[in-house]
Measured scan of single mutants.
Amino acid sequence: MSGIALSRLAQERKAWRKDHPFGFVAVPTKNPDGTMNLMNWECAIPGKKGTPWEGGLFKLRMLFKDDYPSSPPKCKFEPPLFHPNVYPSGTVCLSILEEDKDWRPAITIKQILLGIQELLNEPNIQDPAQAEAYTIYCQNRVEYEKRVRAQAKKFAPS
């Protein structure tokens, strides 16, 4: 494992614990031996107030490669969400998460999670990743928002 990646992720964890947006979660997972795995984080993004996503808490896994922060983490909703920019596998399609697009090593975990929260309610229809959600979003916004509200209710924190 890269010392650069681990040191950056340790800084990220410290900064997150000191200050993070209300309702968001970002925690490194534990290895079988109980030690912390900084390369694999369990996160959760709350649906934004005043949107059909409100009330939901959407679980996301963030996986970092050894060359982080040169390369972005892979962000994957578990379980996958109904959304035009979420692949059926759950992987998020967002330009700041793509090395050859808008990724920059200075982007923080907090910025990534806030960017994904923004994307939930403002899909990028130029870059669809899920045919069904994309089609319904474009053709029947009322039905799309109904499905999103049902999903938010399903993923409401207990």
Rank of each mutant, 00 (worst) to 15 (best):
F77H: 01
P79E: 14
K14F: 06
G50C: 09
L57T: 07
C43G: 11
H20W: 01
P73E: 02
P157V: 04
R8K: 00
P72K: 05
P79Y: 15
Y144K: 02
P21N: 07
E12G: 02
K30V: 10
E12F: 02
E12Q: 05
E78W: 11
R13M: 01
D67W: 02
L120F: 06
G34Q: 13
Q111P: 15
A156T: 11
G34W: 07
P46R: 07
N121T: 12
Q111E: 12
P105D: 01
P28E: 02
K76L: 14
F155L: 10
G50Q: 10
K146F: 08
Y68V: 04
L94I: 05
F155H: 09
V148Y: 03
I136R: 06
H83G: 03
L60F: 15
D102T: 05
W53Q: 02
A26T: 00
S158K: 08
E12N: 07
A150N: 12
E143Q: 11
E145N: 15
Y87V: 07
Y137A: 01
G90P: 06
P84Q: 01
P32N: 13
A5S: 13
I4T: 10
P32I: 13
I109Q: 05
G23I: 03
D102H: 14
G34D: 09
P123Y: 04
N121I: 10
A152C: 03
A15N: 08
F82H: 02
L60V: 09
P72Y: 00
N85R: 04
I4M: 13
L114Q: 12
T91W: 14
F64M: 15
D127K: 00
E145G: 08
V142W: 10
P105F: 00
C75F: 15
P72L: 01
W103P: 00
S7T: 11
R141E: 03
S71A: 15
E78T: 10
G23M: 02
G47P: 01
Y134D: 06
E122C: 13
M62L: 08
S95E: 05
E98D: 15
P105V: 07
R17F: 01
G115D: 00
D127Q: 00
K101N: 15
F77A: 00
D127E: 11
F64S: 04
N124C: 12
G3W: 12
D66H: 12
Y144G: 04
K14L: 09
A26H: 00
L6P: 07
K18R: 13
A44M: 14
L97T: 15
